[in-house]
Nucleic acid binder design. Structure first.
Lengths: 137, 137
DNA sequence: TATAATCCTACTGTTCCGATAGGGTAATAG
DNA sequence: CTATTACCCTATCGGAACAGTAGGATTATA
């Protein structure tokens, strides 16, 4: 299941991408438009800034803005920053690998085999989808 | 993330599918072979029986066995029984649909659009994979 | 009738998620 | 220079879900 953090993050990014000008947008503007708690959204945007997806400007007239064109922001980057692993089990994760306690041999594990298939298919979608593809049509 | 319940369930099913004879296998045999807590596995196999995947025989010499040939047991059925929804958000789930609180219009939602893509790709894998495909090679 | 095994309900400890609280810090307007 | 605005950061907390446990009831076999 996708966490609300990730869901709200994607919605906020889409909102930013749909603006005509890429100038700083305040948290409260996004929060009102997308029905997201102001404080919660604040922590989400902070995470995206630390991940290098968003830039921010402090003080009056400040806010958050996209650091790159929407076409260059891949969904893999966004989801990894907010959600963590894309894989459904840590033992098939590319970026967040962890060995299973119960599995003596990964290559003989049926779950491992299946989840690699799922991961590859999911990655294919997320790698080839950018923020620009999610724009309101 | 896949729950341990689902993971253990798939491992147990694979174990059953790999047996030469499809006669009742005791919980403790599977539990030992796959390093799963006996009691926990018990509840998992019970779920699979209620879902119509496994049959059981009580009393001495009893145990669990596959109700259908491995080739006819789809991963979608197994995962839905143990994990619940396959989709990453309830609003794109086929079997466990729920409307989002924050979304006035699903069709305009960027997350919705993206997650339908992911769901379709995942479903494609899980529908076309049966227990027989997971056999130890 | 003893024993072996599933069946079933309830409970519990832990972890994670979603959200909140409260102040600190930087930039801008005037 | 100062007030205001808005981001920055840490800590905390309630609740839900997960992983696993406990204990006995039931049923079938030998």
């Amino acid at each position: 299941m996708l966490s609300k953090k990730t869901k709200y993050g994607i919605k906020a990014l889409t909102y930013l991408a749909n603006r005509i000008e890429n100038c700083p947008v305040q948290i409260s503007e996004i929060s009102k438009s997308e029905n997201i708690s102001h404080k919660f959204l604040e922590s989400i945007l902070l995470t995206l800034r630390k991940a290098g997806v968003l830039g921010s400007k402090k003080g009056k007239g400040g806010g958050y803005y996209l650091l790159k064109p929407a076409l260059e922001i891949k969904m893999t980057d966004v989801i990894r920053a907010l959600e963590g692993p894309i894989a459904m089990v840590p033992c098939v994760s590319l970026n967040f690998y962890e060995k299973c306690d119960d599995c003596p041999d990964e290559n003989a594990c049926s779950v491992h085999k299946l989840m690699i298939q799922v991961r590859d298919n999911t990655l294919h979608v997320l790698r080839n989808t950018t923020l620009a593809d999610l724009n309101a049509s």
